[in-house]
Design a protein around this nucleic acid. Sequence first.
DNA 1: TTCACTATTTATAAGCG
DNA 2: TCGCTTATAAATAGTGA
Lengths: 213, 213
Amino acid sequence: MSRKKVKLELIADETARRTTFRKRKKGLVKKVSELSTLCGVNALAIVYGPYDPNPDFWPSSPSDAKGVITRFKNMSEMDQAKKMMNQQEFLRERIGKFKDKLKWQLRENQVLETTKLMYECLTGNKDLQDLSYEALGDLTWLIEKRMKEIQNRITDIGMPISTLPPLAQQFMPMPKLDHEKKNNADGDNDGQGSGRDKTAMEVLLSIGNQPSS
Amino acid sequence: MSRKKVKLELIADETARRTTFRKRKKGLVKKVSELSTLCGVNALAIVYGPYDPNPDFWPSSPSDAKGVITRFKNMSEMDQAKKMMNQQEFLRERIGKFKDKLKWQLRENQVLETTKLMYECLTGNKDLQDLSYEALGDLTWLIEKRMKEIQNRITDIGMPISTLPPLAQQFMPMPKLDHEKKNNADGDNDGQGSGRDKTAMEVLLSIGNQPSS
DNA sequence: TTCACTATTTATAAGCG
DNA sequence: TCGCTTATAAATAGTGA
């Protein structure tokens, strides 16, 4: 994008690729922060990778984080709005098709996942050095608990959130879901997985905006 | 950023804010796609919000998605590498502080969350129209299952992944975790949550790059 | 609201140290 | 590998249809 127009394809030269990655990563984070500020949206950006040993974060300042966290804690109040939209979608679905419903549910799910991500990253990243030792301990515990939950989901056992300590529960205001259940079918198999390169998720950006006025 | 330099603050005018959001959202998704292509990174971008009824996605084409998915399916092979790094981190932690450990665990957790997000969004969004009716049914079932899992995590009951149908399990290659457990303290309470504006996560970007050559 | 159209501001590919 | 600098490509604020 400067002396040359750059073709949209994998950059062959390893070094150049790394450099580009570093530069663009930075640019992306900046964009996220701007979008968040300008449009008053909840935003979170985490960018880490094997390329760059040190992750880039946003918000990168406690003051930036404050607004995001504050808004975030009020998320539960948003449930009604979500429900309403949910029902609207359900009506539309009557006219439409499966597709619409799936999309909506995915979106709902993504909202939840993002909720978790945000809380995890914000609590874990930013104010870490500002927390008291007790809080830090709780955080550690919380995080490990969450890890175990995931592990358990894998190995078969559920981990009740109610077992979390007070602070942890406060940090985990997981919005409730409530849409109707529907049916389904059974197992088809597409088997599309050979082995080429080992891959890791290295960059993660998460942005959320608020309904605004 | 054109006729005027734009101050980095919340855009007062609601309409202008929406417009800016829409434009910048688009730009952000484009940046993500470019980063993915140029640097050969796994990338996922989901941008949705109350502003814009319809989410923006990337990859937006099955061909784009293919590479990402393929790479993604090999993630389990990455576990060893992750473990190694994990241990490295653990060594550093001996010298360092709690902080480092928490960061690492958060990162691990983020990788997992991203895994799920990716699979959910990719499967749910792109090839939706290309799936057979059976597969579509499975997808529906899978998604609802996942929703229930989350619900259950909230209400106290765990949802075993092993109960998922074949296709679902294949789509859920949740990498295993394994880091040491640690201790900690109990409940402090910071109580910082009043109610101002109702907020929702509306945009979500997720990018992952591969170790590369 | 949503495009389309610039005038400008930004982001960056290449070079250089 | 980084950090800068510079020329050029891209993104986008303001505006009008």
